[in-house]
Design a protein around this nucleic acid. Structure first.
Lengths: 214, 214
DNA sequence: AAAATAATGTCAATGAATTGACAGAGTCTT
DNA sequence: AAGACTCTGTCAATTCATTGACATTATTTT
């Protein structure tokens, strides 16, 4: 079983394929060709075939791809066939918003715990789950088989807390703190730097105005 | 004035440079070489020089870069020297969380309005700003010189609302709805697809486990 | 059942992004 | 003020990603 490393460029496109396939599926469509997908998604058919082929042949010549099958295969590749247990560290506005976001459960991401170091929040319930002090994290992570931690705390604390979580045995961190975490290679980090994203938007707005002034 | 198109790959890195420069600046550091930045940021010195050079020479041979100057230049490139007026459409948990996020103001992104179509929310105040019905959007956008709309509404509505906003004269959309918007070329869209991000994390966790089992 | 059609999987070509190398400009030391 | 040193800006080389082309295999039609 030869394994070639798959680039993050490809991985980044998978969720989008997954989303479109889910829509086709809901619409009751059974088969789809790379050309059809290409038209809908506005990417080249070649790229679609190339991307899918990284994981082996999901299609059939002369037929195309079976929507249901492809949908499930991509789901499996993305690890959506298994259940993840996640905790949220930081029960501020963003932490609470994420805790309330029910859709993640549909994909197997189960919200299990919510932590903060503000005593005023202790005991407050979100979707049935109480805010706990951060001292409880260690025991909670170990006893509840938590694999993902969502960091929605200020950057000053984020680096230290991340290191602790790694010690407790977490496997991945979804990082909303505006700082680069310092964790071992074997721990996966996915950053959501909202202000970076907003700055990119700002750049593109400015650039467009400059360009069109010419 | 020759203008070469700058790739989004470069743009995506600018906010991170900006962040590190801001930290160096706060630490009172006056100058920095591409090699030093390289060590701190874990990217190649060559890339740093290449990136900065897209916008003209900010450094000096034998000296390096002046932190303060570089910080401001990058800020200008990102359009942070001007003020943006933004409204948030969708006063649910995420919309409220973003509305409460004060740090954006520091960078010139001023939160001006909050809209929803749930009457129960009308009049609710966040940071002094009342939730308004979405029918008010058109007049509000035009009268208040709004250039950025933040979409935190369900995907079913997002596409239509985005089209309306474009008509009203918005220049950029920060899209948190899990759908691809359909807007003209001259309107900038920056997507924040949280579930895509979570799926990527999931993939990387799964992949690492598979890899290390070998 | 054969011919025509459709569409994948894959190889090759192109294009984009990153890295490496170094000449030359500027700084620092003595 | 001269020489040693530093570090950028930039060109070239390399690596990575995307696109194009097509042989092959399956499907559909007649």
């Amino acid at each position: 079983m030869e394994e070639k490393e798959i680039s993050q460029a490809v991985i980044s496109r998978l969720p989008r394929y997954f989303r479109y396939l889910s829509e086709l599926r809901d619409a009751g469509i059974e088969r789809v060709s790379s050309q059809e997908l290409s038209d809908i998604m506005k990417v080249t058919a070649s790229q679609i075939r190339q991307d899918f082929n990284n994981f082996g042949g999901f299609g059939q010549q002369g037929y195309g791809y079976n929507v249901e099958f492809l949908y499930h295969e991509i789901g499996k590749i993305l690890g959506l066939d298994r259940t993840h247990h996640l905790i949220i560290i930081g029960a501020g506005n963003l932490g609470q918003a994420l805790a309330n976001y029910v859709n993640f459960e549909r994909r197997g991401f189960l919200f299990r715990g919510l932590f903060d170091n503000n005593p005023k929040l202790y005991g407050k319930k979100i979707r049935g789950i109480e805010v706990q002090p951060m001292e409880n994290m260690e025991v909670f992570v170990k006893e509840n088989n938590i694999d993902i931690a969502v960091l929605t705390i200020p950057k000053a604390e984020a680096v230290t807390v991340a290191e602790q979580l790694v010690e407790y045995g977490i496997k991945g961190i979804w990082n909303f703190a505006h700082v680069d975490l310092n964790v071992p290679e074997n721990i996966q980090v996915e950053n959501v730097h909202l202000s970076d994203s907003l700055m990119k938007l700002s750049y593109n707005i400015s650039r467009f105005e400059i360009d069109s002034a010419k």
